[in-house]
Amino acid sequence: MGDKGIQIMGLRKRYGSGNTAVEALKKVDMHVAPGEVVGLIGPSGSGKTTLLKCLGAVIEPTAGKMILGDDVIYDDGWKVKDLRVLRRDRIGFVFQAPYLIPFLDVTDNVALLPMLAGVPNAEARKRARELFKALDVEHRAKVMPSQLSGGEQQRVAIARGLVNRPPVILADEPTAPLDSERAVAVIRILNDVAKKFETAIIVVTHDGIIIPAFRRIYHIRDGVTYEEAGEGREFA
């Protein structure tokens, strides 16, 4: 187990109280090392989304411990002052749909994050363009999101998740709206990105096409995670 990436130990989340309480996460243990892409798989209602929201510092777990890089961010309570800054600087998000801001061009959609962190506009746009080169959407940098194909939009969304160089990326069914070919392309990109930028990536998915791509898979059922070795197939 490495000392970077993200570690989760005994994470629990309960909604409500008394007779109506629901234990969405009962015992979650995970570790994703830098440069690694793991799958998180489970049926509907198993707790995937709740886990993603806890990892994304959007909702507060009930108990447990989370370590991001060298920092304990949660230990039976948040250990960071500003969750907004934590999300902005240390966690990247890739959503089921790209959710690009329709009134910003592709470059500014990505550059917005560093700009929000106080990076000068020119520097932020430079970072975005570097990522576009890596993700092969450089030629689409100046167009509006509505002019992109689904696959291009998802690549731009991945660039947005990466632009602040977060140690961890949470990808919520990133291939759901894509056909098989594009889904495979996206998972390949995530693998490349993880290696190139030393990023830990957790991919929540139902997509049987991409599941063989993971070397490790976490199954979640009834709020409990189980680790399993994956095929780690490399798609051509």
């Binding site: 994304g56 959007v58 907004r84 800054v85 999300r87 902005r88 600087d89 998000f93 959503f95 959710y99 801001i101 329709p102 917005l112 994050l113 929000l116 962190a117 947005r160």
Partner: peptide, 16 residues
């Protein structure tokens, strides 16, 4: 609303 949710998730200040 969806864009605002995304903006908030990626760390946009309420002030913005």
């Amino acid at each position: 609303i969806r864009e605002i949710a995304v903006l908030k998730l990626i760390g946009t200040k309420n002030r913005t």
